[in-house]
């Protein structure tokens, strides 16, 4: 028996918005410790890693490890039926071929359930190597989304260049060039407004706008985003999901541009 009840059901709706453009389908690995999802995007240039810890759920029960292959377009249709203030429960029997989503309104006057067929996914096993990053940049997630959107008008790629002074985002194309520099903030009223750079050595890498823009669909999940870069390894774009976990996107740098 698997059952996970999330009082802040809106978080699950936001998670779905953050992954559904990148992935058509994915396996949710449910274990005693929580729910894990790892999958390459449809074109195998980026990887999504989602971690929801059991402690973040109001109620969590997982008697046996369970792999639930879900069609994300179907799951998204179902989650659209939940209101933002609904409590969402996911449940499945051991070895079941369906998963049930139950939506409870806050005052319990409306309870809906939706059963969805699971799919058998033949997914490759992925390993995420432990990496020390040369640069770790924290910035407001809305600012990062804005930068990706603005620079996408200039070209297909964004160059991210990190030095101890700050971080520079650049793009170039037919209409011209664009540079956005963010300095480390000295003092801020709110921590979520801060730009922080932790740099061991300067790094400059180029990434596809298309994917960075898809990652920014996670912006509603967190006020801050963390970018980790090292030469010759994928960029990590991480959004914390309150006290429950995180979503990380890994993106290959452009090679041979």
């Amino acid at each position: 028996m698997f059952e996970a009840r999330l009082v802040q059901g809106a978080l699950l709706k936001k998670v779905m918005e953050a992954i559904k453009e990148l992935l058509n389908e994915a396996s949710f690995d449910c274990a005693h410790s929580g729910i894990l999802l790892q999958a390459m995007d449809n074109s195998h240039v980026s990887l999504v890693s989602l971690n929801l810890r059991r402690e973040g759920f109001d109620k969590y029960r997982c008697d046996r490890n369970l792999v639930m292959g879900m069609n994300l377009s179907s799951m998204s249709k179902i989650l659209k039926c939940a209101s933002n203030d609904d409590i969402i429960t996911m449940k499945a029997q051991d070895n079941a071929d369906t998963v049930t989503f139950v939506f409870e309104s806050p005052k319990q006057e409306k309870i809906s359930d939706y059963e969805m067929k699971l799919t058998n996914l033949d997914q490759d096993h992925l390993g995420i190597p432990e990496t020390e990053y040369s640069c770790v940049i924290k910035l407001p997630s809305a600012e990062f989304a804005r930068i990706c959107r603005d620079l996408s008008q200039f070209g297909e790629s964004i160059v991210i260049s990190c030095t101890k002074e700050g971080v520079k985002f650049s793009a170039a194309g037919d209409i011209g060039t664009a540079n956005i520099k963010l300095a480390q903030t000295a003092t801020v009223d709110k921590e979520e407004d801060a730009v922080m750079v932790d740099m061991q050595e300067p790094v400059t890498l180029t990434f596809a706008c298309k994917y960075l823009n898809m990652f920014t669909k996670a912006t509603p999940l967190s006020p801050q985003v963390c970018l980790s870069m090292s030469p010759d390894v994928p960029l990590v774009v991480e959004y914390k999901i309150e006290d429950i976990g995180h979503i990380r996107y890994y993106l290959a740098p452009r090679i041979g541009d």
């Binding site: 390459m40 074109s43 195998h44 240039v45 980026s46 990887l47 490759d124 096993h125 992925l126 390993g127 995420i128 190597p129 596809a208 390894v233 994928p234 890994y250 290959a252 740098p253 452009r254 090679i255 041979g256």
Partner: peptide
């Protein structure tokens, strides 16, 4: 593409 190959090597052979 080279990027696909890069990701395959990085994540499939940790």
């Amino acid at each position: 593409s080279k990027e696909q190959q890069f990701m395959k090597v990085y994540f499939y052979n940790p």
